[in-house]
Amino acid sequence: MAASDPTPLDDPRARAAQTKRDRTRRALLDAADATFGARGWANTRMEDIAAAAGVSAATAYNHFPSKHVLVGCVYSPLVHPLLIQADHDVRTDRPVVDALTDQVRALARISQRNRKLTAAFWSAVEEYTIKIAGPPDPGDDIDPRTLAPVPQPLRVLIEHGQLTGELRAYPTALEASGMIANLLLLRSINHPDEPAEVTAELLLTVLFGMLRPELLTDAGAQARPFGHVH
């Protein structure tokens, strides 16, 4: 190639094509967000999302090979800030009880504000888990569990707390974070009108009942230490 030949990034046609791909992808994500939220997982087809985005089904499948991928990509931006916060809390050695409490309350708010989308995401996770009959594989880039790793911020903090001795070593961070995330997502289906603070109190009681039970026992049998946001 001669030095004067344009590289793909310098080629106006390549830039225009990339801009079109980006716009189409964005339109599909926006359409999926709205359609999953309105119709749920079972009643939404890729064809419905494509039509809402104004593209063909073939184009939709070219960008996202399945509904599982699409709902994972839609949910991912809701999880990403929590991962950043968890990493920051670990780096700054924030007390793990405070960090986990804020994380769980944030997760509950996200679920409540996006209840129908969360229910659709959970349905996709359950369906995909049954399909592959196994835990998430970090190398599987079409698994909604890896695209939007809801338990991961909790796992990061729990692992840190177990290393510092702030939390009990059992159950493992992997198991504990998975149980809390599963309970959160399940309640998006079984208790769709539950306020976020009610969900958060339940999740925190279960979490610290496993990993820091003295927070509950020291408060007394009738106390509810996670019932208020201070």
Rank of each mutant, 00 (worst) to 15 (best):
T164Y: 00
G54A: 11
L211T: 00
P8M: 06
E197L: 09
M210T: 04
T19M: 15
M210D: 09
P149F: 12
S76M: 00
R45H: 10
P171H: 08
I84V: 14
L100Y: 02
P151C: 09
D33S: 15
Y170H: 07
M179Y: 09
N62S: 15
G134I: 00
A2D: 04
H230A: 15
A53D: 05
A52W: 00
R94N: 04
A181N: 03
G227S: 03
L9S: 12
P149R: 10
M1V: 14
L82G: 02
N114M: 11
D218V: 04
A34P: 07
A106R: 15
R13N: 14
V125Y: 03
Q222L: 13
K131Y: 08
L82F: 03
F121A: 02
T217V: 13
K20Y: 02
K67Q: 13
M179T: 07
Q162W: 06
R21I: 13
H63R: 13
R25F: 04
E127F: 07
D218W: 00
K116C: 08
L163Q: 03
R187V: 06
G134E: 02
P192A: 10
L163G: 05
E201M: 04
A52C: 14
A50T: 13
N182E: 06
L185D: 01
L183Y: 00
A200P: 11
A99H: 04
L184C: 06
G227V: 00
R45E: 04
A181T: 04
A223S: 14
I84Q: 12
P225W: 00
L70V: 10
E175M: 15
I142E: 10
R26L: 14
A169G: 12
P8A: 12
P81M: 06
R168L: 10
A51D: 04
E47I: 12
A42C: 03
T199M: 15
P225M: 09
V156N: 05
G72E: 01
S123Q: 11
G209I: 06
A221Q: 11
G134L: 01
G209F: 06
R109W: 01
W122C: 04
L147P: 00
H80E: 06
A17F: 01
F64L: 11
A99P: 07
L29D: 10
A32Y: 02
R168I: 01
V206N: 03
G178C: 05
T129R: 15
P149V: 09
L117T: 02
W122R: 09
P192C: 07
T35E: 12
G54K: 05
D10Y: 00
A181C: 14
L216M: 09
V206R: 08
T101K: 04
Q162P: 05
A86D: 08
S177R: 02
A42V: 02
K116D: 12
A223I: 09
T44S: 09
G209N: 10
F36E: 05
A223T: 04
D87Y: 12
Q112C: 13
A133V: 01
D143V: 10
A42E: 02
P12K: 12
A99F: 01
Q18F: 11
A14P: 07
R94F: 01
L70Y: 09
V125S: 04
V90K: 14
F64A: 11
A173W: 03
V79D: 01
S56P: 06
I189R: 13
L154S: 14
E47Q: 12
Q18Y: 08
P95Y: 05
T24Q: 14
T118Y: 07
V55M: 01
L183N: 10
T19Y: 01
L107C: 10
F36K: 05
I49D: 00
M1S: 15
